[in-house]
């Protein structure tokens, strides 16, 4: 399995010499994962979890303090393996005086294409990310979202086997986000492995077939997206529980919450509107409604909600923080 994984790391650890004060744990701590070929692999985690650090170690931009790994079969840091790798970094800065075409062609040439070939391949990719109108404009005239799209074209023009995207839709408008998402899904169909770092859980949920969650430098959980979502909810399958959004016509429901039959979990932002989690039995909804009506609550709506990746993510991170930081807030 690990032989054919485009990315495989074992006990990878990174301690930066100049880490911020008060941070006692390594930026990346004893990480072991394998990324399946032709998957879209999402790496999630709060700010400072070590997501970018992992990408830097994989690309040879920083050196591991411990552990090992391979990138497309070659040991980390091997130059030749990067011919087949594309990278869209977070917060990229561009040579503003170059045009879109020059920039993408230069990148492709540095990745090993012949000059002419690089120039030819640049154009369709720039068109694909929606920048055909500004092919020969200097980058300094581009907006943030246009630059992000350009970065994506530059990461793809040499047709890599493995693509790293660090916050790919940062600064891109909703239409553009969907285009980028569709493009990435299209890449998977061509057999390209995509490794995405993102905060946008909805996006990861829609796009990724595998995810890993990182917190405070350590792997919290990892696996196919549906499994991770389930694991977060206490090991039970998402199918065993249902979440309802309940709202009333101005009545405060909080005093009755504790008595709701079968209640597993709750989120009560206002009192006139709350989320409750119940066992997924056939009559759970009618029992909930009966109970609330008996309490003379005037109900406006009772709406079942799907368990989201966000629920799982927050539950997992909170549990991990409780365990590692002794419940103190981060």
């Amino acid at each position: 399995m690990s032989d054919s994984s485009p990315i495989s790391v074992r006990h990878l650890t990174k301690i930066f010499p100049g880490q911020p004060q008060g941070r006692r744990w390594p930026a990346l701590d004893d990480l072991t994962i394998d990324v399946p070929r032709a998957s879209i692999f999402g790496l999630l985690g709060p700010n400072g979890a070590g997501k970018t650090t992992l990408v830097k170690l994989l690309l040879g931009l920083a050196r591991p303090s411990g552990g090992s790994g391979t990138l497309l079969g070659a040991p980390l840091g091997a130059v030749a393996a990067r011919r087949k790798v594309g990278f869209l970094p977070e917060g990229q800065s561009f040579p503003e005086y170059m045009t879109a075409r020059q920039f993408v062609a230069q990148g492709a040439a540095l990745s090993g294409l012949g000059r002419r070939e690089a120039r030819e391949r640049a154009v369709p990719w720039i068109e694909k990310v929606g920048l055909s109108g500004v092919l020969d404009q200097p980058i300094r005239t581009f907006s943030k979202g246009m630059k992000q799209r350009l970065g994506l074209a530059a990461a793809l023009a040499h047709e890599p086997e493995l693509l790293f995207l660090d916050e790919p839709t940062d600064g891109v408008d909703p239409g553009g986000r969907r285009e980028i998402r569709d493009l990435v899904v299209g890449l998977r169909e061509k057999g390209i492995t995509v490794f995405v770092n993102s905060h946008l859980l909805g996006e990861i949920d829609q796009m990724c077939d595998h995810i890993a969650i990182l917190n405070l430098g350590r792997l919290v959980t990892e696996g196919p997206t549906s499994e991770v979502k389930t694991k977060a909810l206490g090991g039970a399958s998402a199918r065993d529980r249902v979440r309802y959004l309940v709202s009333s016509v101005g009545d405060d429901m909080r005093p009755f919450l504790a008595q709701i039959p079968g209640l597993i979990d709750r989120v009560d932002p206002t009192g006139t509107s709350l989320e409750v989690m119940l066992p997924a039995t056939d009559n759970a909804a009618s029992e909930l409604i009966d109970f609330l009506r008996a309490a003379e609550i005037r109900l406006r709506t009772v709406q079942p909600l799907e368990a989201s990746l966000e629920d799982s993510f927050i539950a997992l991170i909170q549990a991990d923080n409780r365990q590692r930081l002794g419940g103190s807030p981060q």
Partner: peptide
């Protein structure tokens, strides 16, 4: 200017020594 943060990383993530 050429090696400012966010530029050098992109160059070196390619097969460039």
């Amino acid at each position: 200017e050429m090696i400012r943060k966010g530029r050098l990383e992109v160059l070196l993530a390619r097969p460039v020594r």
